[in-house]
């Protein structure tokens, strides 16, 4: 029984010599959700993924995947999860077909079963044209599609994406996400994502922010933004008058070309301001705080500088 939880991590510790890579980490991932792990390099994201997927052994704690403890039944767990690594780990000189065939064999998929599965993958990810070409001759986006095909060749329940779009151009990034969304909708896959991109984390169902191997914050993006991020009002008219009034009331202000921006504690604060000074609100917009603000507030680090 997994109570709808596909991953449960409790009190996880992992050290490399003196360095505590993961330090008392506890979280869970529910079936079917898009779960995001957020953190700068060295925050412990990849170490946690490597423990979940059986590449690394934990020092302490309990890790359950699909209802089984990772140390107790690794082979069973491995057949139920797929992973897309940050950098492609497929064989560069082999064709996409050879790569998928050799990896499918690791899951006991041979012969006619493989051909059938390959046909499904080709339809799903549009692989037909690139199947016979060696990997080193493919573009970044094409390679990523093969990486995803490899990760789901055995029809896993859980797909782990370790910074899958890092280093990709914006168009390819969108292509990758379109594929992942399609898989979620059509196959009901649970997706465990680590990312540097806040806009990707903002689309997640649940987010855990890691800092120095510890959990710094967790929640839905909406809750995290409400709790940690400020809201902003941008005035595009009557900016001088607004600046005078808001400065007197102690709001932090920022003047940019064409608008005045005031930082507010929350959406309620914006409503109160509108009611107090309706004459200021002719041309304006209210902006919710984003995940960048949340991350900066929680960790004190700007993820864009990482």
């Amino acid at each position: 029984m997994d109570d709808g939880k596909i991953i449960e991590v409790e009190g996880l510790y992992k050290s490399f010599g003196e360095v505590k890579a993961v330090d008392d980490l506890t979280f869970c991932v529910k079936r079917g959700e898009l779960f995001a792990f957020l953190g700068v390099n060295g925050a412990g994201k990849s170490t946690t993924i490597n423990i979940i997927s059986g590449i690394l052994k934990k020092d302490l704690g309990r890790v359950t995947v699909c209802g089984s403890e990772v140390d107790a039944n690794p082979a069973q767990i491995k057949s139920r999860l797929g992973i897309v690594f940050q950098n492609s780990v497929l064989d560069r000189r082999l064709s996409a077909y050879d790569n998928l065939k050799s990896r499918a064999a690791m899951y006991g998929i041979f012969g006619e079963d493989f051909n059938k599965r390959l046909k499904e993958l080709c339809e799903m990810l549009e692989l037909e044209e690139i199947l016979k070409r060696p990997l080193f001759k493919l573009s970044g986006g094409q390679k990523r599609r093969i990486d995803i095909a490899r990760a789901i060749v055995h029809g896993p329940e859980l797909l782990i994406l370790d910074e899958p779009t890092t280093g990709l151009d914006p168009k390819t990034r969108l292509t990758v996400w379109a594929v992942v969304e399609k898989l979620r909708k059509e196959k009901g896959l649970t997706v465990f994502l680590t990312t540097h991109y806040m806009e990707e984390a903002a689309n997640a169902d649940y987010v855990v922010i890691l800092d120095g191997g510890k959990k710094a914050a967790e929640g839905t993006p909406h809750l995290l933004k409400n709790e940690y991020a400020s809201d902003f009002i941008r005035f595009y008219s009557r900016t001088d008058e607004a600046e005078e009034i808001l400065r007197a009331e102690g709001f932090p202000l920022k003047r940019e070309r064409g608008f005045l921006e005031a930082e507010l504690k929350g959406t309620r604060s914006a409503t109160e301001l509108i009611l107090r000074h309706p004459q200021l609100f002719e041309d304006y917009e209210i902006l919710k705080g984003n995940m960048d603000n949340v991350f900066l507030k929680v960790t004190g680090k700007d993820i864009k500088e990482d």
């Binding site: 590449i55 491995k78 950098n87 780990v89 899951y107």
Partner: peptide
Amino acid sequence: TENTINDLRVSPVS
């Protein structure tokens, strides 16, 4: 060196 071994390690092969 190319971390391909990790791809084999996450597969159910001993």
